[in-house]
Amino acid sequence: MSLAQHLEGPARPATVRVGGPRGGPPLSTVLRRDNWRLQPVLVALGLLGFVAYVVWAANRNGAFYAGSVGRDYLSPLYSPCITHSCISSGYVWGGWSWWRVSPAWLILIFPGAFRATCYYYRKAYYRSFWLSPPACAVADAGSTGSGLRQHYSGETRFPLLWNNIHRYTWYFALIFAGILTWDAIAAFRFPNGIGLGVGTILFVLNAIFIWAYTLGCHAGRHLCGGNLKRLSQAPIRRWWWKNVSSQLNAHHQLYAWLSLFSIIVTDLYTWLVASGTIHDPRIF
């Protein structure tokens, strides 16, 4: 074969070898000197605490509406209240007599799915519970010879593949944010007209944090305008994408936690008022 033929012949598949021994100590040796364990531990405690509270609050199945003490406060964990037990609690909606357990379990499916598939919470639970990795430049649980996960498949297989439904959970989250906004407006309703109680402020703050978290969603940011090739051709979507979605998205982690706490505080306060444990001070 001539040199010319050799050079012009069909390209042979080439193999690029990229492996080999690494430098430095084994990856299981953590060289970081800062307190890298703190963040995953705090996140794990925060998430476990929230789940524990929600399980308790959902199983409570009572004192979730403060109508009997003259306040139109409905716990966010029980809103919209559409089962039979809502009527018995004094709430005007309801009627689903076939739903036997706490109405909270029916409602929590939707915001629960929204948060479980949220890009921020994914980071949080992958780090804190999967330990994959627990912190940056710290070996993940499958690589330290623990035998937990010798092959890592990320979000390519069931069940984690289902995190891709996040945008559908976002559609429902928008509806729920609207419902919680209605609850915040209803919290201004007092027996003799419009008023403002401490609970009203909590309901309004809760609605604000829920909206800030929901509108800053990564999937929502994509659907609002991020999916466009040319933002200049859709000025309204561009404005929303730039000034609302992206601004809130930059603080998505903050609003994820603030809204989590505001849900707990609002539910706890509603329970305390509805059960007669405390009196809701009226500001005007």
Partner: peptide, 21 residues
């Protein structure tokens, strides 16, 4: 230490061929 995600060449220098591949 060198970047521990890449194969070592020597001391603080690692082989970054993978990224160009």
């Amino acid at each position: 230490s060198p970047m521990r995600g890449n194969p070592i060449i020597r001391d603080l220098v690692t082989d970054v061929s993978y990224h160009f591949a």
